[in-house]
Structure formats: structure tokens, C-alpha cells
Amino acid sequence: MLNEKLANYNIILASGSPRRQQFFKDLDLNFEIRLKSVDEVYPEYLKAEQITDYLADLKAQPFRDELSEKDLLITSDTIVWLNDQALGKPKDYNEAFDILKRLSGNTHRVITSVSLKNKSFQRIINDSTTVFFRDLTDEEIHYYITTFKPFDKAGAYGIQEWIGKVGINKIEGSYFNVMGLPVHKLYKELMNL
């Protein structure tokens, strides 16, 4: 259905995330993957959705001079927002452990922004999901990090993995947004193009 609607576009997903790539396949989209390295640094004064909007746009910038009207570049960024602080991907075991200790017994938000861009337009959308973690033991956190190695995930966890199944009491909002893409909002935007 989407492929018919977007037949005039060359869809480019600029993401190395296997989860985002799978979402695009699940939507039955014809797309190509193009990756460009970006230093994901943002101004300190930005908060919550402002951060992910900024980073989704920043990831689109290296492509701007090569996009045509027929191209549709999609970039995205996800953060975990806890106590007025952004938690990104952990650098190592110790940072992952520290992040999960902070999430344990707390409520946080997962925020994802998506940029849709071609030569003449850009639209940025975002979504936020509230996640409730129960208290995790040090042993559970250690097991999860050593078994699943969540170093490529914002907030040091994947909701679809073991820790999500045993540690999350409930969520308010989109499950898929926590996985890294607000699929329902992206679908709506694509259908409205």
C-alpha cells in the first residue's frame, strides 16, 4: 500500500539500526540504506524533544547537497529522558550498569524524532512513550548487560529483550517508539506526502 503511494520517491533510510531497518521491511517499503558518519553533539540548552529533533536534522545534513525532488531521506534519533537529563547509548559495561541502576524503580520517557527530507522540504516529527521500570537487582542488571550487550541502545536497554520482559511494569504510548521508531506516526506522514 505504501509502495504505491510512494512510487515516485526513492526512499533512503540513513540508519544502521537493525530495528529501524526491520520496521521499514515490515511496512513493506522499497528503500535503500545510506550511512554517513555524524558527530552526535547537541547544544546543552536543548531539552527532551528538542534534542532528538536537532539530532534527527543533524543526521540529515550530510546528505542535503545530493538529494533530489525524487529522494526521500529518513533519519531518526532516540533518547531516554530521565530527571531532566538525556541518556544516550552507553560507552561500556560500567556506564550501562549505571544507567540501568538509575532507571531501576523509576519512570522515564523514551523520545524519538524522525526527519523526512528531500531537496525542497523537510518535516520533523517526534513521539514520546513513558516507561515504568520495577526495581532491578544488581544481579539482574549484570546478567542483562553481559548476555545482551545493549551498547547500541539509548538508555542501555531494548524493551523487546529480556530486561523489557521482566523489568518493565507498563508503558504509556507506543511500544515501537521505545524500540526506536514511532511507526504509526511515520506511516501517517508517509501516507500524507
Rank of each mutant, 00 (worst) to 15 (best):
N94K: 12
P182R: 08
F31D: 07
Y42W: 14
A14K: 08
K149P: 00
I11Q: 06
T146D: 14
T130F: 02
D77L: 09
I11M: 05
V38F: 07
V110C: 07
K119A: 14
I33Q: 02
E140Q: 13
I111T: 10
F23V: 03
E189K: 06
E44Y: 00
E4T: 12
G173F: 06
I168E: 03
D77A: 09
I11G: 03
L73A: 03
V114I: 15
K153I: 09
I145V: 12
S37E: 15
K70L: 04
P182C: 08
P150R: 10
L186Y: 03
F132C: 02
S128E: 15
P90K: 04
D77H: 07
K101D: 01
E140H: 10
T137N: 11
F121M: 12
D98S: 13
T112S: 14
Y93C: 04
F121Y: 09
D152I: 07
A48Q: 13
Y54Q: 06
L6Y: 11
I74Y: 04
G16S: 13
E161G: 01
V114E: 05
E44A: 13
F31Y: 15
I51V: 14
R19D: 02
W81E: 11
I11Y: 03
S113I: 10
R134G: 04
S115L: 12
E189P: 01
V183R: 01
D57W: 10
K165N: 09
G164S: 03
D65A: 08
R34N: 10
K47P: 00
L186P: 00
A96N: 02
P182F: 05
E44F: 02
F151W: 05
S174Q: 01
E139V: 10
K70F: 02
G158N: 06
M179V: 12
D71F: 05
S17P: 07
A86N: 11
L13H: 09
K153T: 02
I99M: 15
K25E: 03
G180D: 04
L58D: 11
H184C: 06
D92T: 05
N30S: 14
D28R: 04
A14M: 08
S120Q: 11
L27Q: 01
P43I: 09
D39A: 10
E95Q: 15
S104F: 13
F148H: 13
N169T: 10
T146E: 15
P182Q: 10
Q85P: 00
L27R: 01
F132D: 10
D92F: 07
K165H: 10
K101L: 12
R109F: 13
F133L: 11
G167S: 08
Q85R: 14
A154T: 03
G180P: 01
L58G: 06
S37C: 01
N94C: 02
L6F: 08
D39M: 01
T130Y: 02
D152F: 05
E69D: 15
R20D: 06
V166Y: 07
L6I: 11
K170R: 15
A156W: 04
I11T: 05
Y175T: 06
E66D: 12
K70Q: 14
L58R: 09
D92K: 07
S15L: 09
L136E: 04
D53P: 00
E172V: 11
L193R: 01
F23E: 01
E32V: 12
V131K: 03
I168R: 03
D26I: 00
